[in-house]
Write a protein that binds this DNA or RNA. Sequence first.
DNA 1: ACAGTGATTGGCT
DNA 2: GCCAATCACTGTG
Length: 239
Amino acid sequence: MAKRKGSSKESCECVESKSPKGSDSGHPCLKRLGNEFFGQSCTELAKQLLGKVIVRNVCEDSGSAKMLTLSARIVETEAYLGGEDKASHSHKGKKTERNRAMFMSPGTAYVYSIYGMYWCFNVSSAGEGAAVLIRAAEPLDGLETMRKERSARRKTSVKTKELCNGPSKLCQALRICKQLDRTDLTAGEQFYIAEAADRLQVDEQTIVSKPRVGIAYAEEWTDKPLRFFLANNVFVSVK
DNA sequence: ACAGTGATTGGCT
DNA sequence: GCCAATCACTGTG
């Protein structure tokens, strides 16, 4: 059921007629998820986030007041449990200025820099220091702006399926960086996660679990199946 | 498709 | 000083 026809048009089939509180700055057909959704255990949240939609309302150009919605449907996540999890930045409850968002209320964005040049986006869940890494997404709205962001420092233009198929690629495409660290995703219009339209809903059986990527140092935690993705989905980063 | 490699810097020991 | 929850490019199959 992960397959859908037609696909990649910049369209949105509305489930809800209006965003909450009748705000006119948000995308009209994307209903934001709240505290009751994010307050689940880390692995449960990692699975439940599949099929949900990341929404970014940004300025069209720097200096311009014109607003633009970028959105992408989450297709791959990883759970980082904190505590015993040797791959987690909050292993053994370690708290630093960098990872403070991991300990904030469920639904807080944890955005950190990696390899000196990229960003990764996580969502805090229930559980001390636990968070879900967003690894890949299917671009929905604002494709041309995303392509511009992703192609800027490259020789060739980026294909649609490669706009968001990696944790730092999706941050680049959706303009997620340090200034969004510790954002409360359950409030505000510039950055949130929304319920998917009917045709984007996930069938439980289409979820695959595999070991997490890039954590060879984590000993017995390296191979635990804490990565989740939609089966046969072309927007996933690593099959 | 897959393997090897360089880029580049903040955060932590 | 070391290294990372990565990416892009190149060469090979």
